[in-house]
Design a protein around this nucleic acid. Structure first.
Length: 505
DNA sequence: GTCTTAATAT
DNA sequence: TATATTAAGA
């Protein structure tokens, strides 16, 4: 639909998000059922959001692909009996840098899980309430704030939809994998003589990025090689060169943003929690070096100046999660996309199935490195108690102490890791991150790491990266290390003895 | 000849 | 706005 019949919010849709920044939130709402959509739209208008609606998933994708920067958030109504809504969640989650909230009438754990696994950042159970929507959207948009900077900053009325082309519904189907159809003519219908104008679809771009990443390992990121790797007959070297230029500019921009944020990464290669259990967090000498030993995993203390913490389940990170009750939902094994992890490893008889909202929020805080609202020193735990944030739905959470910031560009990760990374849970499986990090390389080869039954030396998969390569990944040269946990063999530490001494308390 | 970058055209 | 083309220097 060109102009939603419901899109009549001409009054101010200005919402204070935080830190005195005024944001204009534009919401795209998708629901196959028109009355349900109408209701949802009404509620959204009550919240003073700008709303665009559609009943068609295919149209939603068209809109987003054409004008994704105009939207801050997407609400998708999913029907537990119908896979399309979930697919839509997935596609939007993977293709756009947009938070997607699932709206559902089915509040069962199974259904919620499904939505979250498909990429929803949060969920709302119908019937939806104004305050609930406000809270949920605040949370999600804040999480996604980094991308806001890419939007146009003028506060002009954005209700002009003149750029939306009439939609062709004849092929309005959702396809998850349309790798073959990713090159389109500028004007598809006419049998024109016009030159083909390449449309860089997300699929094509992903392929491009992957090629760049592959090549960057050997410092050979050049158009010709990219072209060869991509193996797309329709592409020309010029296409690639042009795209590469654009790609690098965007990386540069992002890098500048990172530098502005004073982004730092610390590294812990392998942390033996048993070895260090007598060292308490916060004590003098504990956090004093580039490489921080974490005696007892407590992200809010030991990593309080970090934005994100990554645990690599395939490297034993799940054991750490288990020991410290860190909720984890993600894809442990890419071969088994719906393997749902996590709580089986929590064998404490007192452990109860967690409340997903609370967990989502904890993970959000964990990922953003902000103190959970009003949470004080309450540890991450596997109890079902909700965080105060969700107890008090009547008021918005206070401004986080630090500006939420999503630290990594998606380009950095291979597509398969994106899947886990974009899950609503910030503790993600990201193997072989920052392969040039000194902390990792120094210890290579010392230990063979079992991963899903197979034994593999890290040396196999890790190579050095110089600053230029890091730069190709959107990382300033000085930023290169992350926290990687592995306690697969807790009694063995891969850190050099001198390091152990250094960190001994 | 190819690559990168900037500028400009479509 | 996104992509393509062109030009110039390395």
């Amino acid at each position: 639909m060109e102009e939603s019949f419901l899109n009549k919010s001409s009054e101010n849709s200005v919402v204070e998000v935080d830190d005195n920044t005024v944001h204009e939130l534009q919401v795209l709402a998708i629901d196959a059922q028109i009355f349900s959509l109408q209701y949802l739209c009404a509620v959204l208008h009550k919240c003073n959001y700008k709303v665009k609606t559609t009943t068609s998933a295919a149209e939603a994708l068209e809109i987003l692909r054409a004008k994704k920067y105009e939207f801050n958030i997407v609400l998708v109504d999913v029907d537990s009996a119908n896979i399309n809504g979930f697919k839509l969640l997935e596609i939007i989650g993977l293709e756009m840098y947009l938070p997607v909230i699932m709206v559902t009438g089915d509040g069962s754990l199974e259904n919620i899980m499904k939505g979250l696994i498909y990429g929803a950042v949060d969920y709302i159970i119908k019937p939806v309430g104004v305050q609930e929507i406000k809270n949920t959207i605040w949370h999600s948009v804040t999480l996604n704030k980094m991308w806001d900077s890419e939007q146009s900053t003028d506060n002009e009325e954005t209700s002009d939809h003149q750029n939306l082309k009439p939609l062709d519904h004849s092929n309005a189907t959702i396809t998850v994998e349309d790798d073959t159809d990713n090159i389109r003519l500028d004007d598809a219908s006419s049998s024109c003589q016009k030159k083909k104008r390449l449309a860089w679809t997300p699929e094509l771009d992903a392929k491009f990025v992957k090629a760049v990443q592959t090549l960057s390992k050997s410092s050979m990121v050049h158009p010709k090689r990219i072209l060869k790797i991509m193996n797309e007959p329709e592409l020309t070297r010029e296409n690639i060169a042009s795209h590469l230029q654009k790609y690098r500019i965007s990386l540069k921009k992002r890098k500048a943003e990172m530098n502005q944020q004073g982004f730092k990464i610390k590294s812990v290669t392998r942390c033996s929690s048993t070895r260090r259990s007598n060292c308490r967090n916060g004590e003098a000498g504990d956090v004093n070096a580039d490489r921080v030993a974490v005696p007892s995993f407590n992200p809010f203390h030991s990593f309080e100046d970090m934005n994100s913490i990554f645990l690599d389940p395939s490297r034993g990170g799940n054991t750490v999660m288990s020991q410290h009750r860190i909720p984890y939902v993600g894809l442990l094994d890419p071969e088994k996309p719906y393997q749902s992890v996590p709580y089986s490893c929590l064998d404490d008889p007192n452990f109860q199935t967690p409340d997903f909202r609370s967990f989502s929020y904890y993970n959000y805080c964990l990922g953003m490195n902000i103190q959970p609202h009003n949470l004080g020193s309450e540890p991450l735990s596997g109890t079902t108690s909700r965080s105060p944030y969700f107890h008090d739905m009547g008021s918005e959470p206070s401004t986080p102490s630090s500006t939420p910031f999503f630290p990594f560009s998606n380009e950095f990760f291979a597509p398969e890791t994106d899947v886990a990374f974009q899950s609503p849970f910030a503790v993600a499986s990201v193997p072989n991150l920052f392969p040039g990090s000194t902390g990792l390389t120094r210890n290579f080869g010392e230990t063979e790491l079992a991963s899903n039954g197979t034994t593999k030396s890290r040396e196999d998969t890790v190579s050095e990266m110089d600053d230029n390569q890091l730069s190709d990944h959107g990382l300033p040269g000085s930023l290169r290390i992350l926290a990687t946990y592995s306690s697969q063999q807790p009694e063995v530490s891969c850190m050099a003895e001198s390091d152990l001494a250094h960190h001994a308390c």
